[in-house]
């Protein structure tokens, strides 16, 4: 008889499989990431700003691509049936997808965020922008979790892309909204990162939402009775 541990083995295999499938894209993102961090490291205003824009773009592209490539396309390309013929339950499969996506997204996301913070700390860019950069990055992560959840729960390209568009539109609104907050814009030019109750509250709310979205996805996935 098999026990639960064997399923962990299967979940790991599925994650490794997903890693093999997106290795090519990941290599391209890594290449892009090195170039962008190098650009930002040139520390001229033009290079820094275009690097920052490319960095945000890269973060969004990595998230969107991984959700589409690993989740939606599995249904679209009809490889889902192949996967489900393997010794896994729908829940194992969803868990593996969640794990693979998070691992594959969180690693580049963390690298990019750390790289960006490194740029800010070691260049003439004032450290006061750190809360803004962190909050925007967390918002991008939250957006990612939202459309990953949509992809995992619906396997529909239409719904996933809709959520992507909405979250990307909201990102602009979010940036605009927090920049106008006195708690944020008054400290942008400060020599050190100044976290206050507003920014810390937003950070906490963002982090909690990320966890809630992921847990809700796992819960709803477990309640599904029909797969394929």
């Amino acid at each position: 008889m098999l026990n639960a541990l064997d399923n962990t083995v299967m979940i790991k295999r599925l994650i490794v499989k997903d890693w093999q499938l997106v290795k090519k894209s990941l290599a391209a993102y890594m290449l892009g990431g090195v170039v962008v961090i190098g650009m930002m490291g040139m520390a001229t205003p033009l290079m820094f700003n275009s690097g920052a824009i490319m960095m945000i773009t890269l973060m969004i592209v990595i998230g969107a691509r991984s959700a589409i490539e690993l989740v939606v396309n599995e249904k679209k390309d009809q490889t889902l049936a192949f996967m489900m013929s393997l010794p896994v339950t729908a829940q194992d499969y969803a868990l593996a997808k969640l794990g693979a996506n998070l691992a594959l997204y969180l690693v580049p996301w963390l690298l990019l965020v750390l790289g960006m913070l490194l740029v800010i700390v070691s260049t003439p860019v004032t450290n006061g922008v750190i809360p803004l950069v962190v909050l925007v990055s967390v918002f991008i992560l939250l957006s990612y979790c939202c459309y990953l959840a949509t992809a995992l729960l619906t396997y529909s390209e239409g719904y996933t892309v809709t959520v992507m568009i909405i979250t990307n539109l909201l990102l602009n609104g979010f940036i605009f909204w927090i920049i106008r907050m006195p708690a944020v814009h008054l400290t942008l030019e400060a020599p050190t990162a100044s976290w206050n109750s507003t920014t810390l509250g937003l950070l906490a709310a963002g982090s909690v939402l990320v966890v809630v979205v992921l847990m809700l996805t796992a819960y709803l996935q477990k309640r599904k009775t029909s797969f394929l």
């Binding site: 090195v34 961090i37 190098g38 650009m39 490291g41 040139m42 740029v119 070691s122």
Partner: peptide, 10 residues
């Protein structure tokens, strides 16, 4: 020597 990977050096 800077903490950033220098593109020219790479």
């Amino acid at each position: 020597e800077w903490i950033f990977p220098a593109l020219w050096a790479l």
